[in-house]
């Protein structure tokens, strides 16, 4: 099987090691991984801010790059949800692109869902000792139904103790451009999340989206807590060796 990687802009710029973790896990499972450097961004920042015409430009570019891919995997639920939404009619894509988007929809996967739902794999031979809390990323949870998949994977990681947060399924407050437009509100929502995380007394917080982790980490650092944030791909790629 050949997988085309889609590495979202945030991961590309700020968390390239997470992208490598995806590559390592997939290769460990004997999958060919390809990466097309013409790829850029899925268009979600424009779409969610109301710039639907600019988002169309992004969608068309994405479809130009990926329309022939057999299977696309991305370490983000939010971006995958955006791509699956290209053909929903919210974006006024030209007919040709609309058809491409319609055909591509079922071939694009969030990383953990790809492993569990598409490959049927929960054991990836990973080791990551310590108490780990999983934050459910909203778009993965509610738009893609990703809840059980990351848990199933984490439960098979050697040494890892999965801890549920006091309130699961509550937003971290990031919300893309919302975090810029309403910085104060975004921060206060995040602080409520941090309370739950500190209560859980974990070494690590993980999620399927780097954007949530960036928000959580940014707030955790201000509290002086030693709890760190690690993308789930990094946990699954980890073999316990430093």
């Amino acid at each position: 099987m050949k997988v085309s990687l889609f590495i979202p802009c945030l991961t590309d710029l700020f968390f390239p090691s997470t992208a490598w973790s995806v590559v390592r896990v997939l290769e460990r499972l004997g999958i060919d991984v390809v990466y097309d450097p013409r790829q850029t961004c899925c268009g979600q920042p424009a779409f969610n801010t109301g710039y639907h015409r600019d988002a169309v430009v992004c969608a068309e570019h994405f479809l130009d790059v990926f329309h022939e891919a057999e299977c696309i995997v991305a370490p983000s639920g939010s971006c995958v949800a955006m791509i699956r939404d290209y053909s929903s009619g919210m974006l006024r894509l030209p007919d040709r692109y609309r058809r491409l988007a319609e055909r591509l929809k079922d071939r694009v996967w969030e990383f953990t869902s790809f492993l569990v739902d598409h490959l049927g794999v929960t054991e990836v031979d990973a080791e990551f000792p310590g108490r780990v809390a999983l934050h459910d990323s909203c778009h993965a949870l509610r738009l893609l139904g990703i809840r059980a998949q990351p848990r199933a994977l984490l439960k098979r990681v050697r040494g890892l103790e999965l801890v549920e947060l006091g309130r699961t399924g509550v937003c971290c407050g990031f919300g893309g451009t919302f975090a810029v437009k309403f910085a104060d509100i975004s921060t206060e929502i995040g602080k409520e999340k941090i309370r739950d995380i500190l209560d859980a007394q974990v070494r690590t917080v993980t999620a399927v989206d780097s954007s949530c982790l960036m928000q959580i980490d940014g707030l955790l650092r201000k509290t002086g807590s030693t709890t760190t944030t690690v993308h789930i791909a990094d946990i699954l790629a980890s073999t316990g060796q430093p």
Partner: peptide, 27 residues
């Protein structure tokens, strides 16, 4: 956006696309 209440991560030394280009795996 992040003002005084949140820290913002620094960009990585190299983007994934740069590393991929250098290492050239399966490109």
């Amino acid at each position: 956006t992040r003002a005084k209440t949140r820290t913002f991560p620094a960009p990585a030394e190299k983007t994934f696309r740069e590393i991929w280009k250098e290492e050239g795996i399966g490109s």
